[in-house]
């Protein structure tokens, strides 16, 4: 009974994580500028690892493998903000202007990738 419950929960977490990853990937392609794409990248970098690693840990239970997976998760969650911040800061320093509310409404919502 518990066994089945864990399997179902793990499957749900894995599939939801995969779905969020794809949505984030679509956002990376679809959004209009570097900074907004960074937010979409953040979706694939935070909730996808959380759910997928969570699902895998549920499958292996108390095992050395779980420790390693949680270490991967911890490391990803500590480093992705740093990488995002470094990218945003470097883009700012390079003088790339963020698309603002007004600029976006002036040019319609046609993104640069059409």
């Amino acid at each position: 009974m518990i066994e089945t419950l864990i399997t179902v929960l793990s499957a749900l977490m894995l599939l939801t994580g995969g779905a969020f990853a794809v949505i984030g990937g679509v956002g990376v392609v679809r959004f209009p500028d570097v900074y907004t794409r960074l937010h979409a990248g953040g979706v694939t970098d935070t909730i996808a690892p959380l759910l997928i690693v969570g699902g895998l840990v549920l499958q292996s239970g108390w095992h050395l493998l779980s420790f390693k997976l949680l270490l991967i998760l911890l490391f990803l969650l500590f480093t992705t903000p740093t990488a995002s911040h470094a990218t945003a800061r470097a883009a700012m320093a390079a003088g790339i202007e963020p698309v603002t509310r007004d600029g976006r409404s002036a040019s319609g919502d046609s993104s640069s990738n059409t």
Partner: peptide, 30 residues
């Protein structure tokens, strides 16, 4: 799940190739 992740990787790669700025490439590669 593996297929979903592969799809995401393909989308990110597309963004990395298209650019337009070098920072878009870095976002895609990350």
């Amino acid at each position: 799940t593996i297929l979903a992740i592969l799809t995401t990787m393909a989308l990110a790669l597309w963004r990395a190739i298209r650019g337009p700025s070098v920072f878009d490439t870095i976002v895609g590669v990350n």
